[in-house]
Design a binder for these strands. Structure first.
Length: 263
DNA sequence: ATGGTCGGGTTCCGA
């Protein structure tokens, strides 16, 4: 009996300005060969989006941006159908969401608000944003079996995702309220792909630019790929690639990629 | 050691 495995690779990367990071992105795509790459913090208006430079490499891309802040884009080797460029029924000026379909897989690319400080206005916005996300995800689940939520969640789900849990204890990105939002996604039928096979601590996707955090290993795992439960059974592997964090002028985040058997 | 460094776009804000 011959078993055919078709591997479909889905990745996420907060690039912190696509204009600055496009060479890193194209180089990484050549190396890692993702079928889909979700980008956050493009910081590009739609007018200025480097559409031609991506399409001339043979990729498809959809994007939603704004001036100065936020912005998300999703690049794909095969054609993209856009489902939504926002959370429906949520009047939010900030461009943080892009939902697409590629090959019967629905992929929700999110840039979760950072939250700034506990109990700040931005923190309240982060929690409100999540409440709207949950109902959107619930709707998507009704219609789609193969569902991916990925992006910069700005949440380190557990202490093993934090370089020094005591130092971070209760702060932004690790507070109970934020972690509960992440847990709620898991309890509503999603699996954190990275944690299927890797239970270790010390695996991070973001290191602050300041205080030589990367060199000192002071990171957090805040970029995630969640798969709907049934689809997660097809996940073969999920890894964080630290290599781009070592380049000149790196993003403060590094890519995360999950591989699925779609046969 | 309670700071630091990026990016965008102006002379500061957000992360």
């Amino acid at each position: 009996m011959i078993v055919i495995i078709i591997v479909f690779k889905i990745a996420t990367w907060n690039v912190n300005s696509l204009k600055v990071r496009l060479p890193h992105v194209l180089e990484w795509m050549k190396k890692a060969d993702p079928d889909v790459l979700a980008l956050q913090e493009t910081k590009s208006t739609d007018d200025n989006f480097p559409l031609d430079l991506i399409e001339e490499k043979g990729y498809h891309v959809k994007f939603v941006g704004q001036k100065t802040y936020n912005g998300v884009a999703t690049i794909s080797k095969s054609p993209i159908e856009v489902i939504s460029t926002q959370i429906p029924n949520y009047n939010d000026e900030q461009k943080r969401v892009l939902t697409i379909r590629v090959k019967d897989i629905v992929i929700l690319n999110i840039y979760v608000p950072n939250g700034s400080e506990i109990d700040s206005e931005k923190y309240k916005y982060k929690l409100e944003w999540f409440s709207k996300l949950h109902s959107f995800v619930n709707d998507l689940q009704k219609k789609n079996d193969q569902l991916i939520i990925l992006g910069d969640f700005n949440i380190a789900p557990e202490d093993r995702d934090v370089h020094d849990p005591n130092e971070w204890n209760g702060g932004i990105l690790v507070s109970d309220a934020e972690r509960n939002e992440f847990k709620k996604l898991l309890s509503h039928g999603f699996v954190d792909c990275f944690r299927i096979n890797n239970k270790e601590n010390g695996n991070f996707s973001w290191w602050d630019y300041r205080a030589a955090s990367y060199k000192r290993g002071r990171g957090l795992r805040i970029d995630h790929i969640l798969a709907s439960e049934k689809f997660s059974e097809q996940c073969l592997n999920c890894y964080i690639d630290k290599e781009p964090r070592e380049l000149e002028r790196p993003s403060d985040h590094t890519p995360v990629m999950a591989e699925f058997n779609i046969q």
